[in-house]
Every structure is written in structure tokens, then in C-alpha cells.
């Protein structure tokens, strides 16, 4: 049968193309992890870089990335959730809310380097926070804000309306209903969004290039007004401004491995939460 023959060939091609991304991912991970794990040990994780980042560890970069993520988290998560709650629960569907949601979508599509420029102009220069954890963390915070808002809206929308009616029915106020019924029911969706955006904040480079990161500093940051080393910037720096590639590229492999493990842990946690909540869903 000619019809089935043609179909078989085309479906086989589609299958091969689909698996190309698996091959790509496997190659990338295999190539980086294989070389990365060779240099990773306790000292690599806990020591400061030595001799112009040709020896020693990358602890300051790990710590810096942690601080940056922490600041962005503190800034974006509460605001993002409250914004999402407002949009999903307190607004009617009209032109104006449509405008808000379109703004959220556009914001999430703004190139990350533009966030970097904004952070530079506003936080670093205008507000005089300087190149610092605060400037970088706020910049990353604005970057992940739309993701948190979108995740919250989507999670709350998936809560059946009957849950709210039941709560109103026993005399609860709007806020009591949102706080006690809607948010707890939608929490796994919100969590998934937050965890994914943490991974994103940890891995972004362009927004911290001129707002927070420095390639090399011997000391650890003492306040949020200090500049910091960060994992992604370290990798970039080692590959572009490094002067001893033989010794620095292995360190870049190690740093990339750590960064990948970090974001993958986040993604996998998010995937697990989502699967679990889907399985536990009874309605």
C-alpha cells in the first residue's frame, strides 16, 4: 500500500528530528559533565579562586549567585503572587485587565540585556546602588516578575469556581476565600513557577553584566552594596577574558557543571511537584 509506505517514511523522519533534541541535550551534558566532574571536589566548592583564577575554588561565585537569587526572590515572589492574585481574583475581564495581561506578556518577552541596561540606568546610576548585589538582584527580580505573575494567574484560574462558591456560601469574605481556599489549592502551580524562575535567575548573565557581577574578587561580599562574583559571569569571563586558557577552561567546565546541576535541580523539583499535584488532584 503506497499510502502507508509514504506515511511510514515521513513519520520516521519526524521521529528522527524529534530525537535530535535528545541527542543534543545528551551531548551537551555528557561533554560538560565529563570534564566538569574531573575538577569538582570539596576544595573547588569551598575555596576562593587563587592565582588569577587558575587554581583554587569558585566558592565566591556560588555564594554570589545565591545572594543574587535571594534578593530577586525576596523582591519578585511576594509582589508577583499578589499581582497575580489581584489580576486573577479581583478584576473582571475587560479592556483594562486585558491591557495588564498584555503588559505582563510583553514584559516576559523583553530581551534580558534590556533588563540589564534598565538596571544600570536606574539602580546603579540613578539610585546610586552602584554595581552591587542589590542592583543585580532587583534587576533579576524584575526579569522573573512576569513569570511569577503568569504562574500565579494560571494556577488560580485552574481552581474550580465551585470552591469559591462553597466558601462564600458559608459566609467567608473574598480575602478569606482567597487566602484559605484559592491560594492553598493553587499552590503547586505557583510553586512550580517560582522554582523555575529561581533557576532562570541563577543562570542569567546579561542582566548582571553591568549591575552586579565582577569577574574576580578575592574577598566575599560584606553587604548588599558590594559587587560579587557569580557563576554565569565567571564562566563567561573565563572563556573570554581569561589569560591562561589551559588552566581556566577546566574551571569553566566545573563552574558550568555546578550551574547546570543547580538549574536542573530546580527544573526537576518543578516537574515532580507538577506531576504529584496532577496525580493527587481529585476534582
Amino acid at each position: 500500500m503506497e499510502k502507508t509506505k509514504k506515511q511510514e517514511i515521513i513519520f520516521a523522519v519526524i521521529k528522527i528530528l524529534a530525537y535530535l533534541s535528545v541527542v543534543f541535550l545528551a551531548t551537551l551534558l555528557g561533554y560538560i559533565f565529563f570534564r566538569g566532574f574531573k575538577v569538582i571536589n570539596i576544595r573547588f566548592l569551598t575555596d576562593v579562586p587563587r592565582n588569577g583564577i587558575t587554581e583554587g575554588g569558585i566558592f565566591p561565585a556560588i555564594l554570589g549567585t545565591f545572594y543574587l537569587v535571594l534578593v530577586s526572590f525576596i523582591f519578585a515572589v511576594p509582589i508577583g503572587i499578589l499581582a497575580g492574585v489581584y489580576i486573577a481574583e479581583y478584576t473582571e475581564e475587560n479592556r483594562f485587565t486585558q491591557f495588564i495581561r498584555v503588559s505582563v506578556n510583553i514584559l516576559s518577552g523583553v530581551p534580558s540585556i534590556v533588563f540589564g541596561l534598565f538596571g544600570l540606568a536606574i539602580f546603579v546610576n540613578k539610585m546610586h546602588f552602584g554595581v552591587s548585589i542589590l542592583s543585580g538582584g532587583l534587576t533579576l527580580g524584575i526579569l522573573i516578575l512576569p513569570t511569577v505573575i503568569q504562574a500565579t494567574i494560571e494556577a488560580l484560574r485552574s481552581v474550580p469556581y465551585s470552591f469559591r462558591e462553597a466558601s462564600f456560601g458559608i459566609g467567608a469574605t473574598k480575602w478569606q476565600t482567597v487566602k484559605n481556599i484559592v491560594l492553598p489549592t493553587g499552590i503547586s502551580g505557583i510553586l512550580t513557577g517560582i522554582i523555575l524562575s529561581i533557576g532562570r535567575a541563577a543562570g542569567e548573565t546579561a542582566p548582571i553584566l553591568f549591575t552586579a557581577a565582577t569577574f574576580y574578587t578575592g574577598r566575599l561580599p560584606k553587604s548588599i552594596f558590594d559587587e560579587v562574583m557569580a557563576l554565569p559571569y565567571l564562566i563567561y569571563g573565563l572563556m573570554t577574558t581569561g589569560t591562561f586558557p589551559d588552566k581556566q577552561i577546566p574551571i569553566a567546565y566545573g563552574a558550568s557543571t555546578i550551574l547546570l546541576l543547580l538549574v536542573f535541580t530546580m527544573s526537576i523539583i518543578a516537574i515532580i511537584i507538577r506531576l504529584k499535584s496532577r496525580r493527587n488532584r481529585k476534582w
Binding site: L28, G203, P232, Y233, I235, Y236, M239, L259, L260
Partner: peptide, 13 residues
């Protein structure tokens, strides 16, 4: 997972 890989790692690779 492919989507979550940081761009600097793509650049490095």
C-alpha cells in the same frame, strides 16, 4: 530541561 539550560552554558558549549 533543554529550555532551562542557562544561555551562558549554551555559549560555553
Amino acid at each position: 530541561l533543554l529550555a532551562s539550560i542557562p544561555s551562558v552554558v549554551y555559549g560555553f558549549f
